[in-house]
């Protein structure tokens, strides 16, 4: 299948590949998907004291669209607050990368990864 230039760009030059210390209280880690489904996405965010995401990293096992979706998301979340990031929808990702219908699940997975990373971060900061 033919990939769009944007997918190929993210696939060939993925942004923000890597790992953050998942024990660090300022880091939220979201891992979604399953090897059985052919894609596993791990998104990590580092949130500063002002509640702004100052760094994001990803690693993804999956097709080119899955890699591109997670790479794009790391760019989008940086510099934003958690509330702003919660507004990112899979539709936005799919539109930006011009994903074909059979690859929409990749963008869904990326949205899930954001939610999972935020949930993990917030679970470390439950105010009594």
């Amino acid at each position: 299948m033919a990939y769009t230039d944007k997918v190929i760009d993210h696939y060939e030059n993925p942004r923000n590949v890597g790992s953050l210390d998942k024990e660090d209280p300022s880091v939220g880690t979201g891992m979604v998907g399953a090897p059985a489904c052919g894609d596993v996405m791990r998104l990590q965010i580092k949130v500063n004291e002002q509640g702004i995401i100052e760094d994001a990293k990803f690693k993804t096992y999956g097709c080119g669209s899955a890699i591109a979706s997670s790479s794009l998301v790391t760019e989008w979340v940086k510099g934003k607050t958690l509330d702003e990031v919660k507004m990112i929808r899979n539709k936005d990702i799919a539109e930006e990368l011009e994903l074909p219908p059979v690859k929409i699940h990749c963008s869904v997975l990326a949205e899930d990864a954001i939610a999972a990373a935020i949930a993990d971060y917030q679970s470390k900061h439950v105010t009594a």
Partner: peptide
């Protein structure tokens, strides 16, 4: 593999069969 979370877990000695995957 540098991009793969599964490879990283394998290298860290994590048994992938022991992980609770979020099937979608």
């Amino acid at each position: 593999r540098d991009l793969s979370p599964l490879w990283e877990m394998y290298k860290d000695g994590i048994d992938l069969n022991s992980v609770q995957w979020a099937h979608h």
